[in-house]
């Protein structure tokens, strides 16, 4: 219990977000939307971490989320750079040869 909020509510919300994230990552075909769902999964983990941290009364949970957000930002920059490199190819050569969005 964190004040009036029971911990199970927090975990339920984060579990639901995580499930949606996994669904998005597995079912979508557009590389950008897959990446968005992965960001959502990481946010679900953040929510769970903060919930646990608050329930334990320590600030360790927040420290971890602080690092996770920094890592997600770095990951986003590298990922989008890869997308740029890929899109530069698909504009020049035939798309269905390397079939960018499906593998």
């Amino acid at each position: 219990m964190i004040g009036p909020i029971p911990l199970s509510h927090v975990l339920l919300a984060s579990g639901a977000l995580f499930a949606i994230g996994v669904a998005g990552a597995l079912l979508r075909r557009n590389a950008i939307q897959i990446f968005l769902s992965i960001e959502l999964m990481m946010n679900a983990a953040n929510l769970a971490l903060i919930g646990y941290g608050a329930a334990l009364g320590t600030q360790q949970g927040q420290i971890i989320v602080f690092f996770v957000i920094a890592i997600a930002a770095a990951e986003a920059s590298v990922g989008l750079a890869i997308f740029v490199a890929i899109f530069r190819h698909t504009e020049t050569i035939d798309v269905n040869k390397i079939n960018l969005l499906k593998w």
Binding site: I2, I32, V65, I69, A76, S77
Partner: peptide
């Protein structure tokens, strides 16, 4: 996050996540 006693992280979430990363996505 604010309700879960993490105001700093909430601010960070808005600035970095919603602010920077998604804007990068939109830009792309």
């Amino acid at each position: 996050y604010v309700l879960l006693l993490a105001p700093f992280i909430a601010a960070l979430q808005i600035i970095v996540y919603a602010g920077a990363i998604l804007v990068l996505f939109l830009f792309l």
